[in-house]
Design a protein around this nucleic acid. Structure first.
Lengths: 112, 112
DNA sequence: AATATATACCTAAATAGATTATGCATCAAT
DNA sequence: ATTGATGCATAATCTATTTAGGTATATATT
């Protein structure tokens, strides 16, 4: 993500949520989806994206499947059962973060 | 902050906001205030706090004044005019973050 | 008297999560 | 032929934080 648009630590939660919603996606597709959803305001940085995906895979939260499309390779990611649990957990953590911010910054932010 | 309770990058915004609300505070006081506001859920880590305060001072956003209280020293911090502008800017940035999260995670989070 | 807890500041080393800058390769369009 | 989009990746650097320590005074407990 560029320019501190998203706070550090939120990337993996975003990726898990994207995969939860879309079933299976490849990296480049995620960058486009994020752009689309945020009206080009958030740009997923590849140097952050790919290491993050690899880490989630290493943690057993995602599986990867390389699929040839034409002469190109796409690496599709999908959430594992363990990943599903973790997705809920990280989303809850993010809600906690917003709750804490609300408390610290004075009711300016709230859960919807 | 311990245990990823707050996302990285939010600390300085929290400190600026605390000082904005309270006029002038010293480091230890901030740790207690954060605990108090969050019902002991967020603990300000001193190893993060003091370097963050020093950085804000170096950036010209805070001034520091050492005051003896009994035999102890307290270092009171206050926001500079430049710091006031920056506080508003960082609070706005945090709102942007929440807005982006709302877009990416699906209307679960919202501005209040 | 000794010990623990609270107050009050600090820094150094390691870790983690990003950014920046590359590299490689295919494909479509000018 | 060269640019821009697609698609993956890593290495170097940056920066904020965590972890783990250090120093010292004050108060409460054993």
């Amino acid at each position: 993500m560029n320019n501190s648009q998203l706070y550090k630590g939120s990337l993996s939660t975003v990726l898990l949520k994207l995969l939860k919603e879309n079933g299976r996606m490849y990296g480049y597709e995620m960058t486009q989806k994020v752009k689309e959803l945020t009206a080009n305001e958030v740009v997923l940085n590849e140097g952050a994206l790919y290491p993050a995906l690899h880490k989630l895979e290493a943690e057993g939260l995602l599986t990867a499947e390389v699929v040839p499309v034409g002469n190109r390779m796409r690496k599709y990611y999908a959430i594992t059962p363990k990943g599903q649990t973790e997705t809920e957990s990280r989303l809850a953590e993010l809600e906690e973060f917003v709750k804490h911010m609300q408390l610290l910054l004075g009711a300016k932010l709230s859960l919807g």
